[in-house]
């Protein structure tokens, strides 16, 4: 990008990275969520999204505070604990041309909101659904969440006796059309997955392991930086190529890449590591997650995608004009129709 004239870099819609920022974070220093917020800023900037075309949603918890820290110009609704999915669903029906970004956490989506989360997924409402997953309740100062590892010990809580909920697995068995997992300590991957999620026409679930530096960063925890750094097993290296951009695969050796074309024509280029993994095969995805669980791998990358599945909007006979732009003329049936109705009421 051209910086010669001293003005900040502008993207294709004429905005600078600054136009995508929010207020400064009030979360703890080093919190994984801050890194994710920074990557959302980067992804939206690079995807040339107008902030006015994005709506943010969140529930309750540390994660759900973070919509304040990006896209300050966008409309946003910070709703109830575990009930963000229904709020987002209703709001996105108001204007189906908007891009929804939901920010949730493991308490919000895997405990109190597991039901709404799964029902949103099975309806395939087009939106990006990010779970900032740290295995712990931060705002209430350190209790186990439903994604905490079995056997993990915490000072006031003792030992966690329950098996964890796997967000990616729950999304998959609910027929999610885009499931990815990443690690907040891997900003490049987070950003590329976010861009693919934004381009996806359907529900895009991103389970991002995001260590809690204050209550949950125990070395033995899956949700810690040290564990993530040591155990992360990327399925592939990911590059996202927006629609209509020239695809250059110079970084990828012939025969070692796999392209997935999303609904809008953009592509995710997956560079093979050792495994031969097909992210369009739900069965293989489930199998891989089982394997990872057994081997204690933190597998990251694009786990599953079905770019052509019909969305919730496709099931309704929606007009092109956003519903919230309609006026009385379109919304109130004519007087004659009521005469007919009255005559039908026996």
């Amino acid at each position: 990008m051209d910086q010669s004239n001293g003005t900040p870099n502008l993207n294709k819609v004429g905005l600078s990275r600054n136009d995508y920022r929010g207020t400064s974070s009030t979360l703890c220093q080093g919190c994984g969520h801050n890194g994710i917020a920074a990557q959302i800023v980067a992804a939206c900037y690079e995807m040339n999204l107008l902030p006015e075309k994005v709506v943010k949603f969140s529930g309750i918890g540390c994660s759900s505070k973070s919509p304040t820290y990006f896209l300050g110009r966008s409309f946003s609704f910070n709703g109830l604990h575990g009930r963000m999915p229904s709020l987002a669903l209703g709001a996105l029906f108001a204007d189906h041309t908007l891009k929804g970004i939901g920010l949730s956490g493991d308490g919000d989506s895997a405990s109190i909101g597991l039901g709404q989360f799964k029902h949103l997924v099975r309806r395939n409402l087009p939106m990006v659904y990010i779970v900032e997953n740290n295995g712990v309740y931060g705002l209430t100062k350190g209790q186990f969440s439903a994604t905490a590892d079995r056997g993990l010990s915490m000072k006031k809580q003792g030992t966690n006796p329950y098996t964890p909920v796997d967000i990616a697995m729950e999304a998959l068995v609910s027929n999610a059309t885009f499931v990815a997992r990443s690690f907040a300590g891997d900003p490049h991957q987070v950003r590329e997955l976010l861009k693919a999620a934004i381009a996806h026409n359907g529900i895009a679930v991103l389970d991002i392991i995001s260590p809690c530096v204050t209550f949950g960063n125990h070395e033995e925890s899956v949700h810690s930086y040290s564990y993530g750094k040591e155990h992360e097993e990327p399925l592939h290296e990911i590059s996202f190529v927006p629609a209509r951009d020239e695809i250059t695969v110079e970084d990828f050796e012939e025969g070692t890449t796999r392209d997935v074309t999303l609904h809008d024509g953009s592509q995710v280029i997956l560079k093979k590591l050792e495994k031969d993994y097909d992210p369009t095969n739900r069965w293989q995805a489930l199998h891989m997650l089982e394997d990872a669980q057994e081997n204690n791998w933190l597998v990251t990358g694009l786990i599953f995608v079905d770019p052509e599945a019909p969305t919730m909007f496709d099931w309704y006979n929606m007009p092109d004009m956003p519903l919230n732009r309609m006026t009385e003329k379109q919304l109130r049936p004519a007087p004659e129709t009521l005469q007919k109705i009255n005559s039908l009421m026996f």
């Binding site: 609704f77 709703g79 109830l80 009930r83 999915p85 229904s86 709020l87 987002a88 669903l89 209703g90 709001a91 996105l92 029906f93 108001a94 204007d95 039901g115 709404q116 029902h119 309704y316 006979n317 929606m318 007009p319 519903l323 919230n324 309609m326 379109q330 919304l331």
Partner: peptide, 26 residues
Amino acid sequence: DTAVVIQAEDELAAIGMAIGAGWGGL
């Protein structure tokens, strides 16, 4: 269609959808 009817998974979601839509201007 200028109106949608959605059978929710429970009343918690039903009111959530309605409030989301009301906030959105529907």
